[in-house]
Each structure stands twice: as structure tokens, then as C-alpha cells.
Design a protein around this nucleic acid. Structure first.
Length: 277
DNA sequence: ATGTTTGTTCCGAT
DNA sequence: CATCGGAACAAACA
């Protein structure tokens, strides 16, 4: 579920609504395993104030006092919800941080994860630097050096669709936005990465940036399973703007689309507008 | 019962 | 040793 636009939306809202709160209590679902170890997590996090909330690729980073950071990755089915204390417990809640603000009122930050592909852990400043260095460029960023990206991609003996999902090369895209980006650039998802020119790669990354920006404006995508919602439970709207993802007909030429399976992921394309070279 | 799913990491093959 | 592809992770839903 959560790709860059969804994580961006959650991060921005948490920055506004969770910053300044103190973590007064921590509940962890029995038998649930926090990556750092549950006891270590509680020891380092309990009683600390949230100073800021930022994003690294698809990770949400809560910056606490004393150079302590909480990393949350939502995986496929993770959610973060801000709830009042008296609200009924959400199904599949794995961890709750009880937050108190300066006016002494309490809210709960609930980490919910149906499939348990998500991760929550505590990190220090050094870990954060390492995490940052793991990821490639973001397509919405400024001053992208397309020659540098070309050099990396040109060596890859795989499809461009697979490359776009590789966070070490380009950060933030997942299956939905990679699929739509390739459609907008007119490139077949199975195109060998080696065959792409610098200008084609530039085009793909620009299209990816545009798709991500449009998705951010629309607060992400909520699919049929309703897995993604924002921290107040509200759905995104980009699913109403899908270009080719889950579309039966091409929005450019109206011909029937096709679906491939690449790296185990569904990949829609238009056989007329995206010719395999 | 079977096949499907927005992400990432690990392992075996090459 | 580096790279690639697929399995695994886990649980709900159709």
C-alpha cells in the first residue's frame, strides 16, 4: 500500500499533530515483536518528547529528545491512526503510543498492521544517517543528475519496471506509481534497462515525479481493501486518477490494456502506446 | 480451497 | 564477489 505519497501525507499530518507531545505510555500487543526489542524500545522511548516528524524514502521518522528516533515502515498493510483514548480499539493494532500535549490532553498514536510486513524500531543519530544513505534519488527532488542515474541503470540486466521498484536507485516508487510513470513516459515495463538512453531515463524520472506530485495532491491512493487511510481515517483520492494501473482501457488511445507480472507485481500497460523495443 | 494483495529482505543460482 | 529472481514474511478477502 504505502508508497511515497501515502507516507508523505501521514508524515506531514503527524508533524502537525504529534510534534510537541510527550510519550507517556506504550502498549505493545502481546507476542508482537518490535525490531529493536520491546524492552529496549520502551526504555529509550518512554517519557520522551516528539520534537519533529520527517520522512526518509518510505520510512516515517519520529525525532525524539536525546537523539532518539522512532522509525516506522508501513510495509504492505500498515496504518498509523491518531485516536482519542476512549475510542474503540482498532483491529490489528500492534503498538500504541499514548501522547500528552502541553495542555495536558491525551491522544493515542496507534500503529496498525494487518499482515505484519511493517516495522517499528528505535534508532540513534548514526542509524539515521546510515538509513538515509541506503536510498537513491527521489523523483520529485531538484537538481537530479540524470547522467549519474543512467550510469547506474545502464548496468542493470533487468526490466525498467524492476529498476523503478529498487529503492537503492530511485526512492519512493512502488507498484502503482511505477506503473503509471511508465505509461506516461510511453515506455513498455519490460524494456531492458540497458537499452534506455539518458533522455529516456530522464523522461521516466520526470514522469515519475509528476505522478508522485499528483498523488501527493490527492493524498495518496486508497484501493478496494481500504488499507490506506490518513491518520484521521480519511481515504486518498489518487485512485480516481489512475492512468493505467487497474485500467481496462488506455486513457490515450482507448484500446484494451494488458497486464504482465514483473518481479511478482502486476504491471498494466497499453500495447499500442508502450511498444517494447 | 485457492489465488490475490500497495513492500522489503534473504537465499540460492548464476 | 556481484547480481538477479523468486520465496518468504502473514493475514484477510473474494
Amino acid at each position: 500500500m504505502p508508497e511515497l505519497p501515502e507516507v508523505y501525507t501521514i508524515t506531514k499530518d503527524l508533524k502537525k499533530y504529534a510534534t510537541g507531545h510527550v510519550i507517556k505510555d506504550i502498549w505493545i500487543e502481546p507476542k508482537y515483536h518490535i525490531k529493536s526489542g520491546n524492552n529496549k524500545f520502551i526504555k529509550l522511548v518512554l517519557g520522551k518528547k516528539i520534537l519533529d516528524v520527517n520522512r526518509i524514502a518510505k520510512n516515517i521518522i519520529l525525532e525524539l529528545e536525546s537523539n532518539i528516533y522512532i522509525r516506522i515502515h508501513l510495509g504492505m498493510s500498515g496504518r498509523i491512526l491518531l485516536r482519542n483514548r476512549n475510542e474503540i480499539k482498532d483491529r490489528w493494532t500492534r503498538c500504541i503510543l499514548l501522547l500528552k500535549n502541553t495542555k495536558n490532553s491525551y491522544i493515542e498514536l496507534r500503529f496498525i498492521d494487518t499482515r505484519k510486513f511493517g516495522r517499528i524500531e528505535v534508532l540513534n543519530k548514526n542509524n539515521i544517517e546510515k538509513l538515509r544513505n541506503k536510498y537513491g534519488i527521489e523523483p520529485t527532488g531538484r537538481n537530479i543528475n540524470y547522467n549519474e542515474i543512467y550510469k547506474k541503470i545502464h548496468k542493470k540486466d533487468t526490466s525498467i519496471k524492476t529498476v523503478l521498484l529498487d529503492q537503492k536507485i530511485i526512492a519512493g516508487l512502488g507498484n502503482i506509481y511505477a506503473t503509471d510513470a511508465l505509461f506516461l513516459s510511453g515506455i513498455h515495463p519490460n524494456t531492458s534497462a540497458k537499452k534506455l538512453s539518458v533522455s529516456e531515463i530522464e523522461k521516466i524520472i520526470l514522469c515519475a515525479g509528476n505522478v508522485l506530485k499528483e498523488a501527493i495532491k490527492n493524498k495518496g491512493s486508497t484501493l478496494k481493501d481500504k488499507a490506506y487511510v490518513n491518520i484521521f481515517g480519511k481515504e486518498g483520492r489518487y485512485q480516481k486518477h489512475f492512468k493505467i494501473y487497474e485500467q481496462r482501457t488506455c486513457p490515450k488511445c482507448s484500446k484494451d490494456t494488458k497486464v504482465l507480472r514483473i518481479s511478482g507485481r502486476r504491471s498494466w500497460y497499453c500495447p499500442h502506446c508502450q511498444i517494447l523495443k
